[in-house]
Design a protein around this nucleic acid. Structure first.
Length: 277
DNA sequence: TTGCGTGTTGGACA
DNA sequence: CTGTCCAACACGCA
């Protein structure tokens, strides 16, 4: 479930503890989590100093200076936890980083094991071939550019917003929430949306993501902050996971359907296919 | 017990 | 180009 707000929450938290730390040891418990041979991974990271930690869409980028950039994608169920080395390690923990002088370890835990680490050469300020596939996130887009993107594709708005190469950061939850608040039916062809409606959508997306970051993300099940605490924004979802409940605006029941083969929650009355404004 | 759905994403295929 | 389905994997739930 980690989408932009969850990843941003994790990144901010990691920065507080890890900038300037030296990686003292790396333990790989599940090699398939790595996109490179474990020995190379361990050798390259050991002794490296954490310079900077950034987010690109849903990717976590840890700048290790000359050692390269450590890339982490959490996919569905990845967790990054900061825990004392004395804490028990369960069977879903796959990679463990120890630091100096910090006492805590950074542990990667992932129930479904879809997430991965990679290590790429280069510097954050340079062009990173690996990451250039990820489009700009909604905060990085001007209103004009956002409109250009929406208008350039003749596909369902929901599919478009989920496409990380076009625009990054949104996943199933925040797309459903945003389209609801913008009064847009998820199957609306992006091209038919009026400029005013698109502008409104952009504003709403940024508002919802900001609120979610403030609430430290949404915990449906697995997402946790690095200190193990759940997010709070799930308590403010208006449609996601609320099928059968009354729409907060018009009281008609929230419906659930498939769009882009993803579960999609919406209100048939508040979200129309042809939105004018 | 069995089967189904789940937050992500890339690739196969119509 | 667009849409649909699946696979990667583990788990909760009906």
């Amino acid at each position: 479930m980690p989408e932009l707000p969850e990843v941003e929450t994790i990144v901010r938290r990691l920065r507080l503890s890890l900038i300037g730390q030296t990686i003292q040891a790396v333990q790989v418990l599940t090699p398939k989590i790595l996109h490179l041979p474990p020995r190379v991974f361990v050798r390259s990271l050991t002794g490296a100093i954490i310079r900077e930690i950034k987010r690109k869409g849903k990717l976590i980028l840890i700048d290790l200076g000359p050692a390269g950039i450590l890339v982490l994608h959490l996919k569905m169920t990845g967790q990054v936890l900061l825990e004392p080395g004395s804490t028990a390690i369960d069977r879903h923990t796959h990679v463990i980083f120890s630091f100096s002088p910090l006492n805590s370890q950074m542990r990667y835990r992932d129930i479904r094991k879809f997430g991965f680490f990679d290590l790429i050469p280069g510097h954050l300020s340079g062009q990173l071939p690996y990451i250039s596939k990820v489009g700009p996130d909604p905060f990085e887009l001007s209103s004009r550019k956002f409109f250009q993107i929406i208008q350039s594709k003749n596909k369902a708005i929901k599919s478009l917003l989920l496409d990380q190469s076009v625009m990054s950061g949104l996943g199933n939850i925040y797309v459903d929430e945003s389209l609801f608040q913008a009064g847009i039916h998820p199957q609306t062809k992006a091209q038919v949306l009026s400029p005013g409606r698109v502008k409104m959508l952009h504003r709403i997306i940024k508002k919802i993501l900001s609120q979610a970051i403030r609430m430290q993300g949404s915990t449906l099940k697995d997402y946790r902050r690095p200190d193990g605490v759940s997010g709070e924004f799930q308590n403010y979802h208006q449609v996601y996971g609320r099928n059968g409940h009354p729409c907060p605006v018009c009281r008609s029941p929230i419906l659930k359907m498939k769009v882009a083969s993803r579960g999609t929650h919406y209100c048939a009355f508040c979200q129309k296919k042809h939105s004018t404004l």
